[in-house]
Design a protein around this nucleic acid. Structure first.
Lengths: 217, 217
DNA sequence: GGTTGGTTGGGAAATTTTCCCGAATTAGAA
DNA sequence: TTCTAATTCGGGAAAATTTCCCAACCAACC
């Protein structure tokens, strides 16, 4: 299953921005032993390309339309445990990074880091090591020191769901209707979420939800 | 002031992601008559590099830390009216696009569009034309059909400032204190903003503010 | 069988929202 | 100039929500 028919390291690129993709394709192929064998711009195509080419390494941006990046990682890992997945993302929130590793990624490099960091990380993965850029290491380290891994860890499932809908712009009535709850219960959750997270304003709540990857934009 | 000492078209690249920058530097330099004369990863450096090299075209991502991209455009335009600025961004909200053009950009291409679109746009700019990618054209066209140019047009200066602080997470008391207003007045503005914009929730207000470029994250 | 913890909602006081209003200021048109 | 229109500022009062406390249910777990 391991694709070593090519001389060096075979790579599948997944990113929804063509220019960016083409850009770092060139960066990677500048390395003599790297070969980009396929590209994809969405999770479904990524999985198809993975099955077709069985690359050594998948370099993927997980913030793609449909937000199914994590799902794609799980799918690929479920099928082949020796394909190494490197997440290459703009975001560096601890929650997102941990989610990626939990899904089965072996590396995480931010787009803000030096190109050489990406190349180094790929080589580490091929040698069976985990790898991440310095900024990610720092974020994870700090996260590890904080009492709660994430603010969201203190929240129950219901609370998280309500926070999500709140941040999405739903009214109290809509949430109650969506979840078949009384308005009173939603109000109580709303209050509870604020006190638990220490946020004083609904706007702060929205920002928190976005930071934690619960909501977008 | 026009820098034609180089044979072809001199370009300044501004983007806060080194890999992305290096990536499309290669894409651009694949064109024989293009020459990337400098790079920058923030607004201040961009302005310095612009003064030092007086490039024909500045290709810049405006969603940089500090969100000072628009300011950078204004600064550059204020100094040289024949430098063409092309915004190269992930975002394609009408408000942001219009803000960029109003600030003095001559082109707007999304990162999601084909690499050739970027190259074509640069050539258009050099010929004195405006240019934008297809998706941007579509967004602006739709926006033009909608009755109000921007939702923010219906808001007064005070209202916008209060919306900004609201979206930033400030409490009513904090806003009142910041602007030397009574709490009552801030409450009244808060209500007025909601009715004017048709938003029913503070969370919706935050999203609106972000969409209009009033707030970030 | 008791304890813990997530879930669901009632109650009641405190606070905010909602909508009304008028006054002061400014900008612009007549 | 004078009048109108728009913006800014805030009071008042009813309606609604927030805030905090509490109780009940259910499931998991020792």
């Amino acid at each position: 299953m391991n694709a070593s028919q090519t001389k060096g390291i075979s790579i599948l690129l997944v990113d929804d921005h063509p220019v960016v993709r083409q850009g770092y394709r060139r960066v990677l192929e500048h390395q003599d032993d790297f070969q980009v064998v396929a590209e994809a711009d969405n999770a479904a195509d990524a999985y198809r390309a993975f099955k077709a080419h069985a690359p050594d390494v998948v370099v993927m941006d997980i913030s793609m339309p449909g937000a199914s990046g994590l799902e794609a990682i799980r799918n690929i890992r479920a099928r082949s445990s020796d394909t190494r997945i490197l997440v290459f993302s703009m975001h560096c929130e601890a929650a997102q990074v941990k989610a990626a590793f939990n899904a089965g990624a072996k590396g995480y490099v931010t787009k803000g880091s030096d190109p050489s960091a990406l190349i180094r990380a790929i080589r580490s993965l091929v040698h069976g090591e985990q790898a991440m850029s310095d900024d990610i290491a720092r974020v994870l380290a700090l996260d590890n020191l904080s009492p709660s891994g994430s603010v969201l860890d203190q929240l129950g499932e219901r609370e998280i769901e309500i926070l999500r809908q709140l941040a999405a712009g739903a009214t109290t009535e809509q949430i109650a209707s969506n979840l078949n709850l009384s308005i009173k219960t939603v109000q109580n959750y709303h209050y509870l979420i604020k006190t638990k997270t220490g946020m004083r304003t609904d706007a702060q709540l929205v920002r928190l939800a976005v930071e934690c990857g619960l909501a977008s934009l």
